[in-house]
C-alpha cells in the first residue's frame, strides 16, 4: 500500500543548524496495516508524516502510495488519498462553520459537483446517523458552530471527517495527546473501531507506549531520523513496556528521552 524508499530530508542544509530529520528511511506497509510510531523528542516522527502528506518535498527517495508515485505530488492532491489528524483539535475543523458544514466540506470533494448545494437534506440524514455512532449527542446539534464544542468532541468529528470517504492512508499525529484521559480513551477506542471496520491502512504517532503496543499490528521506533526498531507479530506480542525500554537502551545506548512518554509508563 505505502512504500517509502531511501527517503531523506535535511532541514537548514549547509548552515550550522543543519538537522538531518529523516535519513534513508525504508518502510513498506501492507493494505490494512495499523502501525504505531514511537520515538524520543525530535526523532522525526512528525517529519515523516509531513513528508508523506506533502507538507514539504524531500531531497531524495521516493514515496509510492498504492503503486502511484506521489513523491512530488502537491499537498492538496495527496489529501485525496491521505487523511490526517493532528494533536491540536483546532487544526482539523473550521470553528465558525457548523458541524454539518464541516462534515459537508470533507464529504463533498469526492461526491459533488462544485455548484451543487453544499448541504442537502439527504446529507443531513447521513451526517446524523454518522454522528450518532460517536454517542456524544452531536447528532442533534448539526447547526452548532464547531468552535463551541470541546476538544474531544472536535477531535471525534475530525475523525469522522477523515474517514468518511475511506482514505488509502490515515495519519494520526498524537491525536489524543491534548485531551483529558477519559476523552482520550474514548477517541482512541473510536479510532480503532473505525479503522478496523473500514480496514484503513493507518499510521499513528503516540507517546503512550502501552497503547503503542496494544493497538494495531506493528510498531516502529524512530531515532535521529532512522527507523531503529520494527516490531511485528510474535516479537511484538511478547513485548511489554519494560521490555521495549530495555530494547531501546541496548540499541541506542541511552535512556528513552521523551518528556511526556515517561509520565505514561505505568
Amino acid at each position: 500500500m505505502l512504500e517509502i524508499r531511501h527517503l531523506s530530508k535535511t532541514f537548514f542544509k549547509g548552515t550550522p543548524n543543519e538537522n538531518p530529520a529523516l535519513q534513508d528511511i525504508d518502510l513498506t506497509l501492507q493494505k490494512g496495516d495499523f502501525v504505531t510510531v514511537i520515538g524520543s523528542n525530535g526523532a522525526g516522527k512528525s517529519t515523516l508524516f509531513n513528508a508523506i502528506a506533502g507538507s514539504f518535498l524531500c531531497e531524495s527517495g521516493t514515496i509510492l502510495l498504492d503503486g502511484e508515485d506521489i513523491t512530488y505530488q502537491k499537498e492538496h492532491k495527496r489529501a485525496r488519498n491521505i487523511s490526517r489528524i493532528f494533536q491540536n483539535p483546532m487544526v482539523g475543523t473550521a470553528p465558525d462553520l457548523t458541524i454539518e458544514e464541516n462534515l459537508a466540506l470533507s464529504f463533498n470533494g469526492a461526491n459533488k459537483h462544485a455548484f451543487a448545494r453544499a448541504v442537502t437534506k439527504k446529507d443531513i440524514a447521513y451526517f446524523r446517523s454518522l454522528l450518532s455512532t460517536l454517542d456524544m449527542g452531536l447528532e442533534d446539534r448539526l447547526k452548532t458552530k464547531i468552535g463551541l464544542l470541546s476538544g474531544g468532541q472536535r477531535q471525534a468529528v475530525s475523525l469522522l471527517m477523515c474517514t468518511m470517504t475511506v482514505p488509502k492512508l490515515l495519519l494520526l499525529d498524537e491525536h489524543t495527546a491534548a485531551l483529558d484521559p477519559v476523552t482520550a480513551e474514548k477517541v482512541l477506542s473510536l479510532t480503532s473501531q473505525i479503522v478496523k471496520e473500514k480496514q484503513i491502512t493507518t499510521m499513528m504517532i503516540t507517546h503512550n507506549i502501552q497503547s503503542a503496543l496494544a493497538l494495531g499490528n506493528r510498531t516502529i521506533m524512530l531515532e535521529h531520523g532512522k527507523i531503529v526498531l520494527d516490531l511485528k507479530e510474535e516479537q511484538r506480542r511478547n513485548l511489554d513496556v519494560a521490555g521495549l525500554l530495555k530494547l531501546y537502551r541496548e540499541l541506542c545506548g541511552k535512556e528513552l528521552d521523551n518528556d511526556r512518554m515517561l509520565l505514561t509508563n505505568e
Binding site: H76, D96, G109
Partner: peptide, 11 residues
C-alpha cells in the same frame, strides 16, 4: 476560517 484544514480536505 481554517486554511490548513481546507487544504487537508484536498481543496
Amino acid at each position: 476560517n481554517n486554511e490548513d484544514m481546507v487544504r487537508a480536505s484536498s481543496i
